[in-house]
Design a protein around this nucleic acid. Structure first.
Lengths: 149, 149
DNA sequence: GCCGAACCTCAACCTTCCTTCAAGTCCGTC
DNA sequence: GACGGACTTGAAGGAAGGTTGAGGTTCGGC
């Protein structure tokens, strides 16, 4: 069995079939069609979806993920070192996120001391480093967890 | 000047007037009306908005923030210790978030070592602690940063 | 008392990441 | 070859957190 139906792929990847079609519509994964127009996926799509889901947990948008996936060689199945290269790029991102939250936490601590929450004087409310913070991506997006899987 | 117009409030709080009306529609803040039906806000609303924005940065949804705000005494203006009580609750949340990202990062490290990203064998793809992770809220939601402020 | 800036409401729209539905087709097993 | 479960497409819906616009009113300074 070299090819997977969308149902099998969904089950094994732990995502809904609707999500798989959605990913495909966004160009994140691809399939071949049977004569009856049904999708069939290569085994390697499993890893591709694993990559997508993990990248989402790291905070990348599907668009960014698509861009990353687009850098994979298109003649052959990606190797470990291909995946390695992509996932290595997440590391600094996670480091940043941790730093940012730690900063917030530390400010919260001093703010709990003062109890102020004032707009002008409180460090918590004055995120001077905010400019560079937004745009780094969400760490965990909640909404889609309601029904998925 | 004990009362603020929505424009002044918006400017001083650093949010758009549309956001203020939106918060009010969600019951997060309140106003009195002039005879001409315009909103007027108390000074303390500034702090309330500071609380809202910071709580959002901590990862709370507006609904959760509303629930927290609802625990404030309704006869009087909240004191420092009121705000103190609420913001103290954020601390463990931030700690959790940090832990979660660190765990993800560490798994990523070991995964980079193996390069697998396999669904069955890779710790990264097998977030066994996921059940308790989702629902803690996003740390930084990106979308609304495009036009806000 | 006039004028422009600021305010009002309500509805529609935006983005991301999907899910759900309807109406119809295919696949594989008995 | 029939049956039921799995698959197809496209459009619509949904949640969060707002923004934008239209059409109209009010405020405050000169």
């Amino acid at each position: 069995m070299t090819h997977l139906t969308i149902g099998h792929l969904a089950e094994r990847a732990g995502v809904a079939t609707s999500a798989i079609r959605f990913y495909e519509s966004k160009g994140l994964i691809s399939s071949v069609r049977t004569t009856g127009n049904q999708r069939r996926y290569e085994q390697s799509t499993l890893r591709r979806i694993a990559f997508i889901r993990t990248a989402q947990r790291v905070g990348l948008t599907l668009e960014e993920i698509g861009a990353a996936l687009a850098t994979l060689p298109d003649g052959r199945t990606p190797t470990k070192s291909d995946w390695h290269r992509l996932s290595r790029a997440w590391r600094p991102r996670l480091d940043e996120q941790i730093e940012r939250i730690e900063r917030l936490r530390d400010r919260l601590d001093s703010c709990i001391g003062c109890g102020c929450l004032s707009l002008k004087t409180c460090a918590l409310s004055n995120p001077d480093d905010e400019a560079g913070e937004w745009g780094t991506g969400a760490v965990f997006l909640e909404p889609q967890r309601r029904t998925a899987r």
